[in-house]
């Protein structure tokens, strides 16, 4: 027992600091979520300072759940954006890692280039994508659609064939700032930025794959797909779990991209909704924050189970 006392004492300050670091914001959020607290109120000036006399009970939660119009939409959107990004980055990351794992001339440069999106700041990434690529007029999106329309228009001039092409409609470029599509824009840009992370992790893991197992499988008559399915994929289970977990934690709190693409029009997630409320209604923002914590915990439990399982075998 005595042996453990000294290390524990030495650890104590750090542990205490971390605890306070977590507990103070959490308990303040909890406290604010149970009282009426707004930043500006001409009608009820007493609500502008936090105090127990403004107790509202579960009122803020009730308001967020049933009266605030964007809450369920934000939850759904949070989950949709995060799962889409996870699926895309893992699939693309696997494909690219497998491709660049072979040897070919210029492999070093290609690898550096593949990693580079990860070093772009999220806000810069979002600005570049929404203006240079996805913009329906000036971006690559607009230019490509314009070019395609021009091509079809040119083909209409031809005799015979022209009749067929005149049946084709004029294509409209998609606007990624619109209500239905802004979430797709966010998914695309974040996927572009985070796929390198997945590639990096998968690549290091692929390097440690046992080549003799592959050769044994070749002798056993396994084709490329069967080798991938039975050897490579199980070998990558752990790195995949890690990529999923780290990304889930990061992407539940996406904010900059959403702000830049559409200022939250048609595309809010929980952090963005909290930001919306926090411009005035701190009570509702805090209640939403508590819901966000619950959602993050559900995801975390789910993921930790999965990672734990992949670490077990």
């Amino acid at each position: 027992m005595a042996k453990r006392t000294l290390p524990r004492l030495l650890q104590a300050p750090a542990v205490l600091l971390l605890l306070l670091w977590m507990l103070i914001p959490l308990s303040m959020t909890l406290y604010f979520s149970f009282i009426r607290y707004v930043l500006n109120s001409l009608r009820k000036p007493e609500w502008t300072t936090p105090s127990l006399s403004n107790w509202r009970g579960l009122g803020n939660y009730e308001y967020v759940l049933f009266n605030a119009k964007d809450f369920w939409f934000a939850v759904q959107n949070s989950v949709f954006i995060v799962t889409s990004i996870l699926l895309l980055t893992v699939a693309l990351g696997l494909a690219i890692a497998l491709l660049v794992n072979r040897s070919f001339p210029g492999r070093g440069i290609v690898r550096v280039l593949i990693i580079s999106p990860f070093f772009v700041m999220p806000a810069v990434n979002a600005v570049l994508w929404i203006n240079m690529i996805l913009d329906p007029v000036l971006g690559l999106n607009g230019l490509a659609v314009e070019g395609l329309n021009g091509l079809v228009a040119g083909l209409r001039e031809f005799p015979l064939l022209g009749g067929f092409f005149s049946l084709w409609p004029e294509i409209e470029p998609i606007s990624f700032r619109a209500t239905q599509t802004s979430a797709y824009a966010v998914i695309m840009m974040v996927t572009w930025q985070w796929t390198p992370f997945a590639v990096l992790i998968f690549m290091t893991s692929l390097q440690s794959e046992d080549q003799q197992q592959k050769e044994a499988a070749i002798l056993d008559g396994a084709n490329a797909w069967s080798q991938f399915r039975n050897l490579t994929l199980p070998h990558l289970a752990r790195p995949i779990a890690i990529v999923l977990m780290i990304q889930a934690i990061f992407h539940l709190s996406l904010y900059a991209e959403i702000e830049i693409v559409s200022r939250g029009n048609g595309n809010k997630n929980l952090p963005y909704l909290i930001g919306d409320f926090a411009t005035n209604n701190i009570g509702a923002a805090s209640a939403t924050g508590i819901f966000a914590v619950i959602l993050a915990n559900i995801v975390a439990i789910f993921l930790i189970r999965m990672v734990g399982k992949s670490l077990m075998d």
Binding site: Q212, Q213, L219
Partner: peptide, 29 residues
């Protein structure tokens, strides 16, 4: 192709498939 030559090889490092049971390892081919 190696698999069609009618040969079977035992490697120095065994090269067993780590994620399969012994039964599956032997049955794989």
């Amino acid at each position: 192709a190696p698999a069609d030559r009618g040969v079977a090889m035992v490697f120095q490092t065994y090269a067993l498939y780590p994620h399969m049971t012994v039964y599956k390892n032997m049955a794989f081919g």
